[in-house]
Design a protein around this nucleic acid. Structure first.
Length: 62
DNA sequence: TTAATTTT
DNA sequence: AAAATTAA
């Protein structure tokens, strides 16, 4: 099956850790990271309260 | 190493 | 231009 619903991931909040702090954040952007012929993961781009942006895996692709 | 995408 | 993100 082709397209993963990034909208699904966009709507939810995820626990993100940075420098020992935990934040519950919604991703600014979501995409699939999947090498050809292998399983992949879903990456979310998050913005911390400090303004820094970090990536975190938020899902798996079978 | 590979994948997409953005930040640094 | 390189790092970072995950795991196969």
């Amino acid at each position: 099956m082709p397209g993963v619903n990034t909208q699904e991931y966009m709507g939810k909040e995820y626990e993100v850790e940075y420098e020992g702090h935990k934040y519950k954040l919604k991703p600014l952007k979501v995409w699939v990271l999947q090498p050809r012929g292998r399983k992949g993961i879903v990456i979310g781009l998050f913005q911390l309260p400090n303004g820094k942006k970090i990536r975190k895996a938020i899902g798996k692709i079978e």
